[in-house]
Design a protein around this nucleic acid. Structure first.
Length: 134
DNA sequence: GCCAACGTTGGC
DNA sequence: GCCAACGTTGGC
């Protein structure tokens, strides 16, 4: 089991919309490092959902329901998507500020490599963020 | 809206 | 294969 974090701009695709949909394919990844992360995702892996720009906070937990396949929005074989479903909304969203301030989350990808849109994280980091959000 | 960080592109 | 120019992302 692996743990991940994905970013979305709320005005583009929000957590609320994701919950209405119940399931979505995670498209729009156009960065090789992020793509490689997508490819590593396995069914059942848990994924934190982060709102970038507006909010700047982790709002919920999703899970991988289908492993990587060709991005249906392009014919370019370089790009992949995975299918995700919402699992649970955090009671209290965890802000970037909180994450930066937390000693145990100093090395999290979100802080170290701000621009990456799909990143792996350690189980301890995942658990810590969920703990902060409950 | 600005700017820093960083990935990608293209000329040499 | 190097590196400058350029584009994009995302925090502020």
């Amino acid at each position: 089991m692996n743990y991940w974090l994905v970013k979305s701009e709320p005005h583009k695709y929000s957590w609320e919309k994701f919950n209405e949909d119940g399931r979505t394919f995670w498209d729009g990844v156009r960065n090789y490092q992020a793509r490689n992360n997508l490819r590593e995702m396995k069914e059942g892996d848990l994924v934190l959902f982060y709102h970038s720009n507006e909010g700047k906070e982790v709002v919920g937990i999703a899970k991988v329901v289908k492993t990587a396949y060709q991005d249906p929005t392009t014919t370019d074989p370089n790009w992949l998507v995975v299918d995700l479903s919402p699992v649970e909304t955090l009671k209290k969203p965890v802000t970037l500020e909180q994450i930066k301030a937390d000693e145990r989350l100093k090395d999290v990808g979100l802080v170290r490599q701000g621009r990456l849109s799909v990143m792996g994280m350690k189980r301890e980091e995942f658990d810590r963020i969920v703990e902060l959000g409950s």
